[in-house]
Design a protein around this nucleic acid. Sequence first.
DNA 1: ATATCATATCGAAGAATTTAGATATGAGGT
DNA 2: ACCTCATATCTAAATTCTTCGATATGATAT
Lengths: 111, 111
Amino acid sequence: MDYYLEYTKVFKALGDPKRAMIVDMLSCGELCACDILEKFEMSQSTLSHHMKILCECGLVKGRNEGKWTYYTLVDETIGKTKQFFCTITTDKENCICRDKTNCCWRGNENE
Amino acid sequence: MDYYLEYTKVFKALGDPKRAMIVDMLSCGELCACDILEKFEMSQSTLSHHMKILCECGLVKGRNEGKWTYYTLVDETIGKTKQFFCTITTDKENCICRDKTNCCWRGNENE
DNA sequence: ATATCATATCGAAGAATTTAGATATGAGGT
DNA sequence: ACCTCATATCTAAATTCTTCGATATGATAT
């Protein structure tokens, strides 16, 4: 069930309004952590934590330049996530609802 | 910031692989709770809790018929959520990154 | 080499989420 | 009326998330 897990990580990352807002900010181009921090009322360590979550799910990537870290959105992940969202919300031949086994999700056994 | 909050609820709901899988199952049409429960290794009360979260964010709605509850996806929410996802990941004139005030997210003060 | 700046990591507290068992509700059947 | 079935709600334990202060790291400037 890695398939679901991969994309639910992205959704979980976007499930926090501050992180969704950070993504929105990055949609117009690269920003460094300090630019983002300026806009929010949160500590530097909290922002760093949120950026890590956004990076770990693949939605954002960081680039170091001198003492700064610049962040950008990752188009490929965005595209794949849109695709995933469409897939799970659209009728289809090979949907899990037609799978007759009763084990489509059993925790971590297949990870 | 109700705008972000509204959709981040949907993402949070989809941020659990079991719930994403339930949505996938519903994509081919209405199912009752017992149909869904059959496919998963989870207790009835846990499923009921997950269905509540999916309903509360507007992604799913329930319909009672006799002793059964039938669930379906809500197309309108799906469409709006796609739109939101596109908006926050696409460059745009009125992006919050161009908003010069430094208060775009301050917790609940505007709710 | 030392000081400063930007960012990351650690550690801990509090809040929220996930889960299941027990119980409640409400519809149907006998 | 009573029993059973499907689902919801309550409660509580375990886990995960969020946040921040303190500290570490690593780059640049003096």
